[in-house]
Computed example of a mutant assay.
Amino acid sequence: MAEPRFTTVLIVGAGSGLSAALARLFAKHGFRVGLAARDVNKLGPLAAEIGAKVFQADASDRTKVAKLFEAVDRELGAPDVVIYNAAARARGPLVALDPLDVERSLAVGAFGGFLVAQQAARRMLPHRHGAIFFTGASASVKGYPQSAPFAMGKFALRGLAQSISRELAPQGIHVAHFVIDGGIRHPSWQEPPNQPDSLLDPDAIAQTYFNILSQPRSAWTFEVELRPWVEKF
């Protein structure tokens, strides 16, 4: 029996860079695309370019996440692909960190992932079909100095992904975690002339997400690490 096809993607924490690359690639393949962010003003040009719907939401607020999915249901239909790309950083020496900043970092980095995954799963389970993807980072597996809050959030997000993958995969929902181990190329960043492609190309990362979405369920990937050829690990 043929596996059901995917039709609608919601990207939470949308912006420039990877989110934009994902949105363009999914739109190219005929998906209905929803873009969710706290600051929706920045999404106007991208939405106009690809015909995406824009939704304002704070991923760390359970009421706003519930309302986000209700709005997506109305305007696009229930999403069968949900990508959690939201993150918040609080940097500095341990003794100088503001607990409120740390709390915010954890709320966006991890708790928001739970809220979004819960709403997504509630819509996917009745159909036994769907995909929930989480964007991780080097900090998902390595805690760096003066970056404890980011590592705490990313470690927790990875734990969430592992747990719900084991729960939901037998029910037809593909959960995957992507460790982005390196800097992502940005127009304002210059790569060293002697090390071309030393930053991750967002279009190349997006293609990996799409490839994993296209996998047959007999050989699903849970986790993939992506890094440029010069990155040490």
Rank of each mutant, 00 (worst) to 15 (best):
Q146V: 07
L46W: 03
P228W: 01
Q171E: 13
G143D: 02
A48M: 10
E231D: 09
V12Y: 01
V179C: 04
F69P: 01
F134T: 01
S147R: 12
L43K: 07
A96P: 07
T221V: 15
D201R: 03
R227M: 10
L160D: 01
R227F: 05
V230Q: 12
E167H: 03
H177Q: 07
V224R: 07
A139K: 02
P216A: 11
I164Y: 05
V230I: 14
V54R: 11
F114V: 14
L76N: 04
T221K: 09
A52F: 02
H129G: 08
R24T: 06
A117H: 04
E70L: 15
A47D: 06
A148P: 05
S147D: 15
A21R: 01
L157G: 00
A59G: 13
P216W: 07
R104I: 11
A176C: 09
E191I: 03
R38C: 04
E167Q: 07
V116E: 00
L199T: 00
Q118H: 15
L22K: 02
Y209D: 03
I50A: 01
L106S: 02
H127C: 10
N211Y: 14
G92E: 03
A78L: 08
S214H: 12
P99Y: 12
Q56L: 07
I11Y: 02
V179K: 01
R89K: 13
E49W: 05
E223K: 06
K28S: 13
V95G: 10
T208N: 08
P202T: 02
A78F: 09
A204H: 08
F150I: 04
L168V: 06
Q56A: 14
Q118G: 10
R74V: 13
A90K: 03
R74A: 15
V230S: 11
P193F: 11
K53D: 10
L76I: 10
F178P: 00
K42T: 12
G51Y: 06
A59V: 14
L97M: 08
D58F: 10
